[in-house]
Design a protein around this nucleic acid. Structure first.
Lengths: 251, 251
DNA sequence: CGGTGTCTTGAATACCATCAAGTCTTGTGG
DNA sequence: CCACAAGACTTGATGGTATTCAAGACACCG
């Protein structure tokens, strides 16, 4: 059974996403720039070579200054705020194709750490290049605006979840949001049972929902007992989407 | 005593803020545009006339489409998300000089309601004008980027507060944040005792911190008993800034 | 093979919500 | 101007949700 599970779970990668217009617009800009240059490939590699970080490593430290904006190409990462007493809060999960934050286009000093959840591949784009491209190419401007809207919308939703929703709702909504984002990227299906690659540990869910790992465990067990989800072997299936959406108060 | 309190509490208005570069950059753009036009004043009035809303009125409804971006000129407002079962979450308080949201520059469909807390004066700026100005005038672009950074930073902070902080911390931090924002605008002093106009009802604090009004009342009473703050007559004084910052975990 | 990380489960506890009653203020229409 | 209603705040009693503490099972890795 697990074998089947593994084989149907697709590997997340921005390459599989035909709709990732932001990244393709950005790459196009690089191509435009580089078409005027000899040895374009070499120049591209030098400027935004593919980088790698293994699971649980920090890609991007807080309060460092950066001239680059990372874009996740493969794997999952998270933006995390850490408090001095050890409390942690995940601001967002970064999936393949996501720019770490549109704020980094304007502010070299991030206010959070970027942590790899799985092994991650990412590219660095020069902030200066992107700002220039944004002003010169309408489609880049458009795509960055879109990313901006999306980013703020997700932050606002999280505020509501953390401020006004119960543990059950928060966890169910997190899972549904992730599944929708993956579906948009074409790395998972919308067919039932909705099944997806799910590399999050329970402590990631806890840090994203403002709960403790212990309580996350209890809620997930409850979901399983009620036949809502099945979690095994780093993959997750939503067995009863209707019931699950009802728990999440999402129609 | 209250009389003195009233007299020292200054009235919030963007006119008192010499540092509001966003609004002045925007107005400058209008002046630039209008300098090419006869009857400039009339045109300015027509395009972004000062509007008014009295306390507890809704300025901006969710899911309406808008061609305009409101900027608060006088008074306090809030962006509020309302859930179907009556739960409410305030995403941010809007003070004089604040653009409602930079997202509205790109997305005509807001995901929250704007509610006046006090009587409010505001101006509507045409989205199309602002986008155009953003591309043509570097300083407008700069100021809008700054507003975006600030807006996202505050949203991220709120996520951490709601996810990982206790009621005491949340409330203390809210008050300190507001006091700092007012101080930046020059509508309050940084001298001790830090005193400011404070038109929020306890239910506003509750909706902003994800708590119940009852609990807010209890925490504020505790603060008062410990000599941290004094609240009377729609004004608030931080009597012991050091102790208060300690409660808020802010140095 | 011990060490570390992950998950589960139960018991005790803390924090905040809910319920309820009462005071005081504010606003409004007769 | 008064009467009454509605809103704002306080306080105490009670309850529920999530945390903390603790112990154990299991998998993975050097």
């Amino acid at each position: 059974m697990n074998v089947q599970t593994r084989s149907t779970a697709q590997r997340a990668s921005y390459h599989t996403d035909p709709n990732n217009q932001l990244l393709s617009a950005m790459c196009e800009v690089y191509d435009l720039r580089l078409s005027q240059v000899a040895h374009a490939d070499a120049a591209l590699d030098a400027r935004n070579a593919l980088q790698r970080a293994s699971a649980r490593r920090i890609i991007f430290r807080e309060h460092d200054l950066h001239d680059d904006v990372p874009v996740i190409c493969d794997g999952w990462a998270a933006s995390v705020v850490m408090l001095s007493d050890g409390r942690r809060q995940i601001l967002s999960f970064l999936l393949p194709g996501d720019m770490v934050s549109t704020v980094l286009l304007f502010d070299p000093r991030p206010n959070c750490v970027i942590e790899a959840i799985t092994d991650v591949k990412y590219r660095m784009f020069k902030r200066a290049d992107l700002k220039e491209a944004m002003l010169k190419h309408a489609d880049v401007f458009e795509q960055i605006s879109k990313a901006w809207i999306e980013e703020k919308h997700r932050a606002d939703q999280l505020i509501v979840d953390l401020g006004r929703r119960t543990a059950d709702e928060r966890i169910a909504r997190l899972i549904l949001n992730l599944s929708e984002r993956l579906a948009e990227r074409g790395v998972t299906t919308k067919k039932e049972p909705m099944e997806m690659e799910f590399p999050l540990r329970q402590h990631h869910i806890a840090d994203a929902t403002g709960l403790t790992p212990v309580h996350v465990s209890k809620v997930l067990s409850e979901f399983r007992r009620n036949g809502l989800v099945k979690i095994s072997d780093r993959s997750l299936a939503i067995l009863d989407p209707t019931g699950f959406r009802r728990v999440a108060h999402m129609r």
